[in-house]
Design a binder for these strands. Sequence first.
DNA 1: GAGGCCCTATGCAGATACTTGTTGTTGAAG
DNA 2: CTTCAACAACAAGTATCTGCATAGGGCCTC
Lengths: 227, 227
Amino acid sequence: MQILVVEDEPRLAEAIAQILKEKKYMVDIANDGRDGYDLAVSGAYDCIILDVMLPIKDGYQVASDLRKEHIATPILMLTAKDTVADKVKGLDSGADDYMTKPFSPDELLARIRAMTRRQGEVVLDEISFEDLTLSLSAYNITCKDKSVHLNFKEFEILRILMSNPAAVVTKEDLIVKVWGYDSNAVDNNVEVYISFLRKKLEFIGSCVEITALRKIGYRLEVKKSAE
Amino acid sequence: MQILVVEDEPRLAEAIAQILKEKKYMVDIANDGRDGYDLAVSGAYDCIILDVMLPIKDGYQVASDLRKEHIATPILMLTAKDTVADKVKGLDSGADDYMTKPFSPDELLARIRAMTRRQGEVVLDEISFEDLTLSLSAYNITCKDKSVHLNFKEFEILRILMSNPAAVVTKEDLIVKVWGYDSNAVDNNVEVYISFLRKKLEFIGSCVEITALRKIGYRLEVKKSAE
DNA sequence: GAGGCCCTATGCAGATACTTGTTGTTGAAG
DNA sequence: CTTCAACAACAAGTATCTGCATAGGGCCTC
């Protein structure tokens, strides 16, 4: 975990660095706003601790310039200014959090944990099987660089197949899960959509195919090389 | 923008709600930890303001339970407890920010802005997609030199669409996030506002359009050149 | 009471979902 | 080896239902 400390007073900067290093964070220090900005635009840091009163370029400016460049690194602003107006200015210039000096090391660490925690959260947004990727938010399938949109029923069916690639899914299962247990859909309905899906898999050139196992159901498989 | 206030003292809850409503936030209030949790798990809120000392289930518990359920809604913890240990406990139980009473309304609002900003990776005051820019403070959209005002519902819908341009947003999602999860708005309401938005996009000559994907939802797309 | 905002109702167009029918495939019985 | 029944795939046609646009009415603010 990389942290950038932008602070012009060497002793304070060193003290903060020490606190962080003890917790195994990797720390870089910048002594003025310009250096801080230059380091931060790399996007290499997981968190930036930013003083407000800085030579050359103040903290508000640094934060706001970073946001303009679409650098989304969490910023914790750290300063002696404790009026509400200062806090509002800091937060609105792009900071995610604002702490006033003097501060407690434990609180600093807790706020860093809170800010960086969010970073690692991956939104489960897609399912993959071999070279095939199903996007749950965009409702399409992608293989290499080609992608194609799925309509509702196709999507639901493929999602069920892909969420359990090894398993064989019966038509009854599909009807219950896609059409609803009280529907009067017939097997042929499923066959029709399977056929649509096969066409789309073919179109994007995926190596995945939907195999029918007679009397049993459907399963995803990797195409045999000898086509 | 939906905000949940979890606070057992009715007068304070009402005061907070008032501050927020003035800024056009939609506010729900829960009076104890259990109700707060039940409302929050819906995932309908953009932000939760959470008191610590609550009947039935305290704020730490609520925050930590929500995180266990993978509800990532930003939480601002609000309490009279101001020791470092309390702050650490609050932040580590899942809160994103921690404010002590008494607090300034302006600071509260600034911290809410800071927390919700990250949601859509908004650069300060505006969101952009292709040639379209949505101003969060002026409630209007601009394309090249033309701009047009949006009313509240139009604005909220477009903000949601633009904050995640690749994703398909269902009508359900829009109803929950714009009308509130307990509203009885119907799909047609959404359709009407989508229709208004399209007219305004057309009017300012944007290359962005709102595409409907049947049975799935809406998505922003760039207009095909061959009109 | 004028104007803006929000919701409801309605007719229409077109995409989607389902049906039907033909052809192809499989496997077991004769 | 042939025949037949059961099952599967697919194309094409039809009907339904979703989504769109527009109009009108209630409500609130100014």
